[in-house]
Lab assay of single mutants.
Amino acid sequence: TLFEALYDYEARTEDDLSFHKGEKFQILNSSEGDWWEARSLTTGETGYIPSIYLAPV
């Protein structure tokens, strides 16, 4: 399942991933609670993103 960003997000740590509204992600690991490891389909970068900023596509 792909997810789309509902809002912009600016990374706060080196493990976080910055993204823009409308960016799409492949989720790599969603077992860490509210922060999911994801790969951006726009940039190819991976990192942790807040799941509350996402909606399934």
Rank of each mutant, 00 (worst) to 15 (best):
S31D: 13
E37P: 06
I27T: 02
T43F: 02
T42P: 02
Y53H: 08
K21C: 08
L41C: 11
L28F: 06
R12I: 12
K21N: 04
R39Q: 09
K21R: 10
L17E: 01
Y7R: 09
A11K: 09
S30T: 13
E4D: 02
L17T: 03
Y7D: 09
I49M: 02
T1Y: 11
E10P: 05
Y7G: 07
K24M: 14
T13K: 14
E45A: 13
D16T: 14
G33D: 11
G22T: 03
I52D: 14
G22R: 03
R39W: 05
E45L: 15
H20E: 09
L54F: 10
Y7I: 12
G22Y: 06
I49A: 05
L6C: 08
T13N: 14
V57Q: 05
G47N: 03
E10A: 11
A5R: 00
L6K: 08
S51W: 10
P50I: 06
A38E: 00
T1D: 12
G44C: 11
E23I: 01
F19K: 00
K24C: 08
L17F: 12
E32W: 10
E23W: 06
I27Y: 02
T46R: 10
E23S: 04
Y48K: 13
G22M: 03
S18R: 04
N29G: 10
L41W: 04
E37W: 15
S51H: 10
I49N: 00
S40E: 02
K21T: 07
A5C: 02
E23N: 06
L28G: 02
D16H: 15
L41D: 03
A5E: 00
W35P: 07
D8S: 09
D15C: 15
K21I: 08
G47D: 01
I52L: 12
T43I: 01
G44P: 01
S51V: 11
F19Y: 03
I49Y: 01
E32S: 14
T13G: 15
E45F: 10
Y53F: 11
T42V: 11
I27A: 02
S30E: 08
K24T: 08
T42Y: 09
D8H: 06
T42I: 10
L6Y: 03
W35D: 04
L41Y: 05
D16L: 10
A55S: 11
E14R: 11
E23F: 03
L2N: 05
S51Q: 08
S31L: 12
E32L: 14
D15E: 13
E14N: 12
G47H: 06
E4K: 06
W35S: 07
G22K: 04
W36C: 04
E14A: 14
I52V: 11
S18W: 03
G33Y: 08
L54Q: 01
Q26L: 15
V57S: 07
A11W: 02
S18D: 04
W35Q: 07
L17I: 11
T1M: 14
A55T: 14
W36T: 02
S51T: 07
W36G: 00
L41R: 03
E37R: 09
